[in-house]
Design a protein around this nucleic acid. Structure first.
Lengths: 255, 255
DNA sequence: GTAATAGTGTCTATAAGACAGTATCCG
DNA sequence: CGGATACTGTCTTATAGACACTATTAC
């Protein structure tokens, strides 16, 4: 680490240029926001929390909830704060960074850099009533991607990216129990999460074999629980275990 | 899409408040940078391009190459531009967004939001000589993570995240041919890429079976090529096919 | 009883791990 | 020829797909 040497080597850039290059004030400042993709399952359908824009631009169109990152908080922290404001819930379930979108033309007001987060909150319908949530609604994801719903900015693309992430993530991470609004659940309820997220039916016996063969995924409670739908045999209840990976991955049906 | 209705529903926020909330000038501007994690294989070792900092802060420590995002370019475009400046190469191989790091305290000069990109450039040693590359060097990744090399800011953490991404990515994406500096290559050379990135030995016969069983991964050229190392039988040459996924994934040895 | 769902068992196909044995090259 | 690497074949084990069959519940 001989800094003297490294300075002398700098034939292609003087120290002055180096400092100028790293002077924050000389470089174009940008707005940094977080956008939240909050998935939930309601009435057997995969939905996402959207807000109908009341101001311009893009007035009347649907947008992802979110807001600006303050100077005294990390981006992750800003995402959790916005989540709390939008849903009245602390981070239950699961929340992680998806991707950052930045382009001169995605917002007409200026260069907005927006860091998108994906999350999953069970039972969201009961809780959404935050300050900012006046216009908030749960919208069926399929209607966003394949319907004629008007989405603001590039938010339709972000929803598509987020859905891909969730669908891929549940193949190898044991996060699906967090998508169920109860601590104790049946295998049918867990299977239902996979079926709704993937939009595919899964053969029950093979699903059972796979999840029970993954050590630490599920812990049997020893009690029987009622099926959600009437009729049929009572089923065993399970809790989430401490394993985080499913290996080999859970396979997603093809068609 | 009745905008009149949605305005009337807005009991918790007036239109004025809404506009104020979305006025860019009222929110804290931040510097946005891109950081590049450029991996390469040189002399059988996995290395990454680093720059020894000639200015303060963190003078004398090693940092990821990168720079500020201009107002007339997207973040992706800025990453490609910096790549060109640092390596004198257009985007060969593979480059994708990794993650965004933003925290009030990660840079002492102010709130710097930095969008990290991971990439892989074969044969980098021959090309790195860009304007900004005066202090650039290829550093063995293991020395960064497990050695006593001094890294600036949170860049050690970013390198760790990037390595995990690359290691996971080559399990299911057919990007490894891009890590070889030739269009026509042998199976041993491809296997070598996996072994260096994972830091694990792979049984050759099983590797061969797996990659050849993946349709569209490799196309036999019909010629024989010399092994890199002296001695031994000549091997068949292959080109990259048009498949992008390996399914089921290539498994990474455990120990 | 019937209808409906939970759970078991099994047969088959696919894929991975391990490794012996053969082929082809260099010197 | 020997040494080295490329390639083939095969046996075993693990896992997935398909699906028949039994068990337990509500009515």
């Amino acid at each position: 680490m001989n800094t003297k040497d490294s300075k002398k080597d700098s034939t292609m850039m003087t120290e002055e240029e180096f400092l100028a290059k790293y002077d924050l004030s000389k470089y174009p400042p940008k707005a940094v926001t977080v956008d939240l993709l909050i998935f939930t399952i309601e009435e057997g359908e995969l939905k996402i929390l959207l807000i109908k824009r009341g101001g311009h631009p893009e007035m009347g169109k649907w947008a992802l909830p979110g807001g600006f990152v303050n100077n005294n908080e990390s981006i992750d922290k800003a995402a959790l704060r916005e989540l709390q404001e939008e849903t009245n819930l602390d981070a239950r379930g699961w929340l992680e960074q998806l991707k950052t979108y930045g382009d001169p033309h995605r917002d007409p007001r200026g260069y907005v850099t927006s860091v998108a987060y994906v999350g999953f909150i069970p039972n969201l319908g009961e809780f959404k009533a935050g300050d900012d949530a006046a216009h908030a609604e749960l919208i069926v994801v399929d209607d966003i991607l394949n319907g004629d719903l008007q989405m603001a900015f590039d938010h339709k693309k972000i929803v598509a990216d987020g859905l891909n992430r969730v669908r891929a993530k549940i193949e190898y991470q044991t996060i699906t129990p967090d998508f169920i609004p109860k601590d104790e659940f049946t295998l049918a309820e867990l299977r239902h999460v996979y079926e709704v997220v993937w939009g595919k039916k899964i053969p029950a016996p093979n699903f059972r074999r796979k999840v029970l063969a993954t050590p630490g995924f599920l812990i049997p409670v020893g009690k029987k629980g009622a099926s959600e739908i009437e009729g049929g045999r009572l089923s065993e209840l399970y809790t989430k275990g401490d394993a985080s990976r499913i290996y080999p991955e859970m396979r997603r049906p093809e068609d």
